[in-house]
Amino acid sequence: MKKNLVYKTALCAMMCALTVAIGFLENLIPEMPFLPPGAKPGFSNIIIMFACEALSGAYVAAVVLTKVLFAFVTRGATAAIMSLSGGVISAFVMFLLLRKGKNKAGIAGVSVTGALCHNLGQLAAAAFISATLKIVYYLPALLVFAVLTGVVNGIIAGAVLPPLKRINNTFEQEE
């Protein structure tokens, strides 16, 4: 069953490139007064969700780690730790939900759960780095923002993923 290896590797590389591009574009979004500082819409979660469905766990990990590496190169060690703590947990949970969840949650639920895990993982990492629990004051804003971005990403994913999966299936069968 190794004949799909080249196809899957190429697909994974495309996912990596997309998350890096999206990450770069999100950095250009200016701070807005009503949003928590440093908050991003997290559109690359849509890519991760597609990767979870189309590729195996190792490929998903490669996509997440590429994102972390990009954060490290462009924004430094602290940003990389934040990207890692949020990215790994959210990708892992979304992978489980999409693969083993038996369709209990809709795509918006998966997206919201991913965003929640991302923000909570980052908050935990931030508490660890700053060695204080006082930053739990961020929690309400982070929860609300995770729901907001999760729903938006879920709606986009609901529109984008089905045709992408159809194309993907056609290519896989042609191999």
């Binding site: 209990k104 809709g106 639920g109």
Partner: peptide, 11 residues
């Protein structure tokens, strides 16, 4: 693929 299910809304 359904976008919203009941469990999503509850969540």
């Amino acid at each position: 693929m359904k976008i919203f299910k009941k469990s999503d809304i509850i969540l």
